[in-house]
Amino acid sequence: MKFIILALAMLLAISFVAAHNPQFPVSIQHKLVGSWNDGSRGGEVFAQFDITVTNDGQKNIKQIVIGTDATCRLRDSTSIWNVQVIDGPFVDFLILPSYQDINAGASYTFGYIIHGTAQANLFVKSVIYA
């Protein structure tokens, strides 16, 4: 149990540092679309979010790796769209589809449905410029 708490604390610290990393001029905005109780799943609460990734830099982004943590508990494997999921025990990383770039000053939107109503912690891990 101590190991899990320590690991979660480390992930939180990493996400805080990465979210405030000026190395990547990228912003991530969450927008709550809605939430509901799902009677077919024992009254569990779910929420849908739209995520907008904005390239605030002057170079086009060819690929971006967005990290997350245990807060990204998707409803099921079909509950995320417009990104590719690279996962381990949780959803670990999100990347753009291979055909998608984000031009300088432009944005890209994807979405997910998650357990509960709190948004998932998302942070930029790395950026590859075109």
Rank of each mutant, 00 (worst) to 15 (best):
G57A: 02
H115G: 00
S126Y: 09
G39P: 10
L8N: 14
T52I: 05
I86V: 14
K62D: 12
G116M: 04
A120F: 05
K62G: 11
A70K: 09
F49W: 08
W81Y: 09
D76W: 10
K2I: 11
Q119T: 04
I86K: 10
A120Y: 07
G34D: 13
L11Q: 15
A47C: 06
Q58K: 15
N55T: 05
S40G: 02
L12F: 12
Q58V: 12
I102W: 06
P22H: 06
Y108L: 00
I114A: 01
I95C: 02
L122T: 00
M10R: 10
Q29V: 13
T52C: 02
D87R: 15
Q29Y: 04
D50F: 06
D87C: 09
H30F: 06
Y108S: 01
W36R: 08
I66Y: 03
Q63I: 01
G116A: 00
N55W: 04
L32K: 14
V53W: 01
T78P: 01
I51L: 00
Y129G: 01
A9Y: 08
G43A: 07
K31F: 07
K31S: 13
I14K: 11
L6W: 09
S40E: 14
S27K: 10
F16E: 12
F110M: 03
T52G: 02
N121V: 08
F93C: 11
I95Q: 09
V91W: 08
G42M: 07
V65T: 15
G88Y: 07
N82E: 13
N82R: 12
L94F: 08
D38Q: 08
H20L: 12
K59T: 06
T117Q: 13
G42S: 08
I95W: 00
L122M: 10
Q29T: 13
A18S: 10
H115P: 03
E44I: 10
V127M: 04
T52A: 04
S98I: 05
V83S: 00
Y99L: 04
I28T: 06
G34L: 10
S15L: 07
I61A: 02
V91E: 07
G111K: 08
F46Q: 04
S27T: 15
N21F: 08
I64D: 00
I102P: 04
S79H: 04
G39Q: 12
I4A: 13
I64F: 01
A9I: 13
I113F: 01
Q58S: 14
T54L: 05
A120S: 12
V26W: 00
I5T: 12
V65P: 01
H30A: 06
Y112D: 01
I102K: 03
N37K: 15
K125F: 12
Q23R: 11
H20Q: 11
Q119C: 02
P97E: 03
G43R: 07
T54F: 00
G39S: 15
K31Q: 13
R73G: 02
T78S: 14
T71Y: 08
V17Q: 05
I80Q: 01
K125M: 12
I66F: 02
F49N: 03
P22K: 10
P97F: 03
G88D: 15
Y112H: 04
I51H: 02
L12P: 02
